[in-house]
Design a protein around this nucleic acid. Sequence first.
DNA 1: CTCCGTGCAAAAGGTTTGCACTGGT
DNA 2: ACCAGTGCAAACCTTTTGCACGGAG
Lengths: 144, 144
Amino acid sequence: MESFERIFREHGLPLTVQRRVILDSMLDRTDHPSAERVYSEVQAKIPGISRASVYRILDLFVELGLIQKINPPGMAARFDPTVRRHTHLVCRSCGRMVDMDAPGIGVLPLPDGRAYGFQIDDYQINFSGLCADCAKKHTQQPDK
Amino acid sequence: MESFERIFREHGLPLTVQRRVILDSMLDRTDHPSAERVYSEVQAKIPGISRASVYRILDLFVELGLIQKINPPGMAARFDPTVRRHTHLVCRSCGRMVDMDAPGIGVLPLPDGRAYGFQIDDYQINFSGLCADCAKKHTQQPDK
DNA sequence: CTCCGTGCAAAAGGTTTGCACTGGT
DNA sequence: ACCAGTGCAAACCTTTTGCACGGAG
């Protein structure tokens, strides 16, 4: 929780205000914000911050293993403070993304990729469909 | 195979040279080209073709169910003539993508999303790792 | 002949980069 | 004081869009 200062020291990385604030705003959130959304939220706390810094800092956190980057099909990348592998539900219509923490769901053995010339070491499962709001809209107005 | 002319007629869609050539270049291929790659390949056969047409035509084929669009994490979309759901192996280093047709791999029941307010109707599994070439490079030069 | 499809160029959206300055350590 | 981190703007990559022309039906 607060040992992130140690993590930075161990890597010889300066702990700047920008990094503190962005890390703060990422932890303990259950949504999956895009870089743009993090940017606009953080602007309230650090008015002069640049979009580039947000991107750089989020990518740094990913490299440090502090957060996870998710690339939903056809939309901006999202960032997730939950680092362990887990499954996401994505709304095809509005892009809303929620964690799916059902036991047994989304747990696969890593297959042997040698027949394909691959060393497989990770996987990602994304379920897609419609969230409640979008399902409602679609049934009300099936056209368009 | 050749009934695609019928498919177009049924939809009242003109069958243009561009569509013929792009469909031709897509069928029977086992790689997973990006729109840009299709564009440069097709330029050899139709010198004046525009990038926009390639994008429009590929998307049309996806709507017609003739091909599939794949969105690998963090890179340009790929197109796949194999329409049925199947699993992909993606090289994290070079982006190479191969089909993984092992029986039983990548077949999941659709979970009940109601607890999350979702109607789940599809999913995608991507295994990731290193292809043989990139694995070789990494072991030879672990740094950088 | 009538439209739809196309080519072109520009815009849009998301992300990265080069460079000078600033702020941690 | 040093050097990495930052802000800014421009570049970049992928994809979409507006519009006028041209070819398929």
